[in-house]
Computed example of a mutant assay.
Amino acid sequence: MLHKRRRSFLNLLPVATMFGAYFPLKETIASMYVLGSVIVIVGVFLVMRGESIVRKKE
């Protein structure tokens, strides 16, 4: 189960890259990138929440 948890955090790399381009480089962020980031963050949250529920049942 731990490897799934680690892999889910890899999905946050594009989100971190977006913020890394915005703050130091002052790049513009399109609304589609923000929407995609929200979807990724919600997905990672759901994976983490689902794993904790499965662990409680075991």
Rank of each mutant, 00 (worst) to 15 (best):
V38L: 08
Y22P: 03
E51C: 00
R5N: 13
G20R: 11
K57R: 11
F9Q: 07
M18I: 05
F9N: 04
Y33R: 09
M32D: 14
V42A: 00
K57I: 12
V42F: 11
P24H: 02
M48R: 02
R55D: 15
K26L: 10
A30V: 00
K57L: 14
M18V: 05
S52P: 00
L13Y: 07
Y33K: 04
V38G: 00
V54P: 03
K26N: 05
I29P: 01
H3Y: 07
N11S: 02
R5A: 13
R55E: 12
F19L: 10
R5Y: 10
V15H: 01
H3I: 13
E51P: 04
S8A: 10
L13Q: 07
G36F: 07
I41N: 03
I29A: 07
K4P: 08
I53D: 11
L46I: 01
K56P: 07
F45V: 07
V42P: 11
T28K: 12
V47D: 13
V44N: 03
K4W: 15
V42T: 07
L25M: 10
L46S: 02
F19V: 08
P24N: 00
F45N: 11
E27Y: 04
R5D: 14
G50D: 09
R5S: 11
G20S: 02
M1K: 11
K56E: 10
K57V: 05
F19M: 05
Y22H: 11
F23P: 05
Y33A: 15
S37W: 10
K56T: 12
I39N: 05
I39W: 04
S31I: 12
R7Q: 01
R49G: 09
P14A: 02
F23M: 15
Y22I: 03
K4A: 10
T28V: 03
R55N: 09
P14S: 03
S52C: 05
M18C: 02
T17D: 07
Y22F: 14
P24D: 03
A16I: 14
A21T: 14
A30C: 02
M18R: 13
M48I: 09
E51W: 10
V40M: 01
H3S: 10
Y22G: 01
G43D: 10
E58S: 06
K57Y: 14
E58T: 13
R6Y: 12
I39E: 02
G43V: 00
G50R: 08
V47S: 05
M32F: 12
P24E: 01
I41M: 08
M1Q: 02
L2H: 12
V54T: 06
V40I: 06
L12P: 02
S37F: 10
R7K: 08
A21S: 12
I29D: 00
K4M: 10
Y22T: 09
R49S: 12
T17K: 11
L13R: 08
G50Q: 15
N11L: 01
G20K: 04
R55K: 04
R49V: 09
S31K: 13
S37M: 01
R6L: 14
L10K: 11
H3D: 12
